[in-house]
Design a protein around this nucleic acid. Sequence first.
DNA 1: TTGCCATATGTCATATCTGACATAATCTCT
DNA 2: AGAGATTATGTCAGATATGACATATGGCAA
Lengths: 100, 100
Amino acid sequence: MKNTKRKTVKSKWVEGTVKDFLSLDAADMELIETRLAASRLLKATRQKQKLTQQVAALKLHTSQSRLAKMESGDASVSLDLIFKSLFSLGVSRKKLAAAF
Amino acid sequence: MKNTKRKTVKSKWVEGTVKDFLSLDAADMELIETRLAASRLLKATRQKQKLTQQVAALKLHTSQSRLAKMESGDASVSLDLIFKSLFSLGVSRKKLAAAF
DNA sequence: TTGCCATATGTCATATCTGACATAATCTCT
DNA sequence: AGAGATTATGTCAGATATGACATATGGCAA
């Protein structure tokens, strides 16, 4: 994601540009919140199953360190990975959707 | 995602292994279905707004070709990108969750 | 305190995703 | 039918995510 910043000079052009910019920003926020919601659900699910990150990581074919990053909503982990991990731990799409 | 295949020989060990394998497979399926659901919503949303892929791609700061791939649920696009695009087009998390 | 276990953080080589481009296929008119 | 618009597919260099590892920090019992 580049997010090239554009200078504002003229009225109409400005409005459109700023609006688009803000709109994108809002989208970023929503994405981040979504990631955090999924992260929290992942952590809660693992804890409910009494698994350590180490053990859960084995089930998920990943490492303890990455799972820690997943659960903390670290920006370096994709939604794909978090979602897949949730599904691997048995969370249904319905339940995941409810966590949004 | 590697998905190392393991041969099955002994009973107990087998059961666990196969189960894990199937479980992972199911997780993959769920992820794919989630991706497809989001893809369909993206396409529907764009069409409802009477935008061509070309124009929508501009708003999303991407290219027509990638948007086409997003809308077709192509495996080469991440959930992150599809979700972010949905949010950028104004879809709420609630509405997105409902599409699951 | 110490020791032990769980979780968090930093880094790196490799794998995967990204936007852009070209071009092909499909649709919508006349 | 053909032309123009829209959408789909293939490819690639650069960007980002991945698993693994080392190491740091946090808890908690003795």
